[in-house]
Design a protein around this nucleic acid. Sequence first.
DNA 1: GCATAATCACATTGAGTTGATAGGAAGGAA
DNA 2: TTCCTTCCTATCAACTCAATGTGATTATGC
Lengths: 148, 148
Amino acid sequence: MLSQKAKYALKAMLALAEQKNGELLQAADIAEHQNVPRKFLELILLELRKQGLIHSHRGKHGGYALAKPADTITFGQIVRIMDGPLAPIPCASLTGYRRCVDCQDEKACAIRKAMREVRDAAAGILDGMTLESACSGGSAGARAALTS
Amino acid sequence: MLSQKAKYALKAMLALAEQKNGELLQAADIAEHQNVPRKFLELILLELRKQGLIHSHRGKHGGYALAKPADTITFGQIVRIMDGPLAPIPCASLTGYRRCVDCQDEKACAIRKAMREVRDAAAGILDGMTLESACSGGSAGARAALTS
DNA sequence: GCATAATCACATTGAGTTGATAGGAAGGAA
DNA sequence: TTCCTTCCTATCAACTCAATGTGATTATGC
Ligand code: FES
Ligand code: FES
């Protein structure tokens, strides 16, 4: 389940990606146009900045901008920062692996196998979808990444 | 994120599927062998019965058994009963659709498109994986379903 | 009939998470 | 200086999750 936080983060990042030649966009503007609670959005932008996805400028005429080209930032990165691993269950995660205490033989566990497949599929889609490919409509980018 | 409840449900259903010719299996036995809290498991089995996936027998020598052949029960059904829709976000769900109040144009929403792809991928895997195919090792069943 | 053993059905709990708000501190522009 | 904007921490209510408790109901074996 994608949290509101992650959804807002994606919306904000998409808004920043649509900005021409890295012009600054203010939190209040994003909040209004994307229908996101302003103070909550600040929290999210703060976290995105600390993770190096965006940079910010303070004071009058301040705001936010992407820290990297839009085609190098993926949905997967953003979702992982906000909600943690993509895997439905920790034992099937690459980025946040944790053993299942109640499974005796992890290697043979059918549930783990299934969830690993789900994780791989989700990662294939979300890590292949960049802000760029999402902006310029459709999922062509994702599909290209999947077949590569 | 798969809840403990759903994970326990899958474990219980797999245990029941491994039972020969529909013999009864008791909650206490499942709880012990699968390392699931006994009372919590009862709650889960109750729900599975109410949804028609298993049937039960009370009294001494009672227990539970699958209500249908193991190759007609999928991971997807079980997970949906326990955790609800597979989609990461309601607006991308078929079984539990709910509109996004904060998105102006749902049809063009890039987030929805991405999450719809994730949902379809997850559904393809989980609805293609039956208790039967999971028991007899591997994900051959799921892959067969995906290419069909 | 009676003791036993199992499922059935709620009610309750404690911990943790989620979504959001409040209030100011700090930095930059006019 | 005086606005304006981001930065930062604390706090909150509501909800969910995982688990437990208590007793009622139903079937078996003697
Ligand atoms: S090893 Fe994680 S579910 Fe079995
Ligand atoms: S329509 Fe649901 S995220 Fe945009």
